[in-house]
Simulated assay, not measured.
Amino acid sequence: MTTVEVWRTTDRLLPLGEAADGAWIAEQAVRALLVTAAEGVRGVVPGRPRFRLARETGTPLPVPPGGLPPGGLVISLDFAAVAGRPLPVLAERLRSALLGSAEERLGLTVDAVNLRVTALLDAAPDSTPPAPPPGRTTPPVPDSPIALAALAVEGVAALTDVFGSPVRQDDGRLRVELAVTEGRHPLDVVRGVRAAVTAAAPEATAVTVLVSELR
């Protein structure tokens, strides 16, 4: 019997790690982290990071709805620069900050970072406090060994339902959605979760994990 999956968000999912990791992370979570990294580069006022797939590596695991297939990503960012600072040096510092956050902090595979200066500023604009994040909800924990196994992995903050059910099983396919504790490496947490839920559900033929947020 075919089941209809209800998707609760328009947010895309970006491939996390290698194809064999079976992991994806919400684009919104990645974008927030990269903006923070870019704002840490003195003399830069970043815009909104954009992502596209540069190359597809292929995967034997199912790609979730709204997800890019595993492969190398291209990150593009427009930014304003404070005048008086050498632009090549500024751009290199910005590129390094973005790559460090994307690859080392998260575990994304990045093929290129494209930067474009859109304005030169006499001085950095006054910073305004960011809007408070929308209220986050944590769904009830499903009463299943799979859910309990996932929650027992260090670094799992909660199971979530942004992209569907926290635990979804269908024709041998198993998918778990979760939030990762801020400061923990998402890819390491995902690998731990995949190992734990695979042991809890040995009948599953394909196990994937979605990271909806960092909290």
Rank of each mutant, 00 (worst) to 15 (best):
L108F: 11
L108Y: 08
T109F: 03
T109Y: 04
D111W: 13
A112K: 13
N114M: 09
L115C: 02
R116S: 10
V117S: 00
V117C: 12
T118E: 15
A119W: 00
L121C: 05
L121R: 02
L121P: 00
D122S: 08
A123S: 14
P125G: 02
P125A: 06
D126W: 13
S127G: 13
S127M: 12
S127P: 07
S127A: 15
S127Y: 07
T128Q: 12
T128G: 09
P130H: 04
A131S: 12
P132F: 00
P132K: 07
P132R: 10
P133R: 09
P133M: 04
P134S: 06
R136Q: 14
R136P: 08
T137G: 15
T137I: 05
T137V: 13
T137W: 11
T138C: 08
T138M: 05
P139Q: 01
P139C: 04
P139D: 06
P140L: 04
V141T: 15
V141L: 12
D143F: 06
P145A: 10
P145M: 06
P145C: 07
I146C: 02
A147C: 07
A149P: 02
A150V: 03
A150N: 03
A150Y: 01
L151D: 05
A152S: 12
E154V: 12
G155K: 07
G155W: 03
